[in-house]
């Protein structure tokens, strides 16, 4: 069984980002970049399935410029077998990424596409769902547990009301939530081995996809800074305010 894991290079979650002075985007120059945390969880889950003998190959794919090979290498050091870079200088939105991934899925024919539920840069939470629709595959989003049972994937999903488990026929798309697993550290020997694992490069043109922007960004702004709180004198007063002002209880 082959697992395809799409991953994305994003600004590291520890970094405080700043908006560019012209309000067109956030300023990413000189910032530490990492593999998106949800993607890392997807890589970990795929590698665990391989270690458990369920999967036979783990392929990672990333859409981006050459720099994203760093994150592909990280995934290889975590245990993925090979990488694919879809080379583009553009910053495609979820629909374009899903179209590109769809083509890669057609070429690779994986049993499972395991990806993060969202990336921490755009927080879109769309790519997995769009890919499932394009590829005509079932989808299990926000997975907190994944079990393979014959030709079915049992996905326990985190939903507002609690947990729900769906059974999907393979091939299927599964997106990961935070509690699915705790990713390992890349060990020094595995970092060294990762160097010898192959990364192939393709392009949107080769895949026959035109990256188009269906969304126009008008302005990027920092969230309003939090205004100072008020001190209350007693618990009674707090409850009163929660009822009458905040209206949350």
């Amino acid at each position: 069984m082959k697992i395809l894991v799409p991953i994305k290079r994003v600004v590291d979650y520890n970094v405080k980002v700043r908006v560019k002075s012209d309000n067109t985007d956030v300023d990413l120059s000189n910032l530490k970049m990492s593999i998106n945390p949800f993607c890392e969880i997807a890589v970990e889950e795929a590698v665990r399935l391989k270690e458990a003998g369920v999967a036979s190959e783990v392929v990672v794919v990333s859409v981006g410029d050459k720099a994203c090979q760093e994150q592909i290498r990280t995934a290889l050091a975590l245990g993925a077998d090979r990488g694919i870079q879809v080379d583009t200088d553009q910053k495609p939105l979820p629909l374009s990424i899903a179209k590109l991934l769809h083509k890669v899925v057609e070429q690779e024919d994986p049993s499972i596409v395991l990806l993060g539920k969202q990336t921490i840069d755009g927080d879109n939470n769309q790519t997995g769902q769009m890919l499932a629709a394009l590829a005509g595959m079932g989808q299990g989003t926000f997975a907190s547990e994944l079990k393979i049972d014959g030709d079915k994937a049992l996905v326990t999903r985190e939903v507002d009301g609690g947990l729900v488990t769906v059974a999907l026929s393979l091939p299927a798309v599964v997106t990961t939530d935070l509690r699915l697993n705790e990713p390992r550290y890349a060990s020094l020997p595995n970092i060294m081995k990762a160097k010898r694992k192959p990364i192939t490069v393709t392009t949107p043109e080769e895949l026959g996809v035109t990256i188009e922007s269906t969304v126009e960004v008008l302005k990027v702004e920092s969230p309003a800074s939090r205004s100072a709180g008020v001190m209350v004198d007693s618990v009674e007063q707090l409850i009163e305010k929660l009822k009458t002002e905040a209206k949350v209880i």
């Binding site: 760093e70 290498r73 990280t74 050091a77 550290y185 890349a186 020094l188 970092i191």
Partner: peptide, 14 residues
């Protein structure tokens, strides 16, 4: 080097 960056990153996480 890229390897050294990755070694350092693993060490920092640890």
């Amino acid at each position: 080097s890229q390897d050294q960056q990755m070694f350092a990153e693993t060490a920092k996480q640890f």
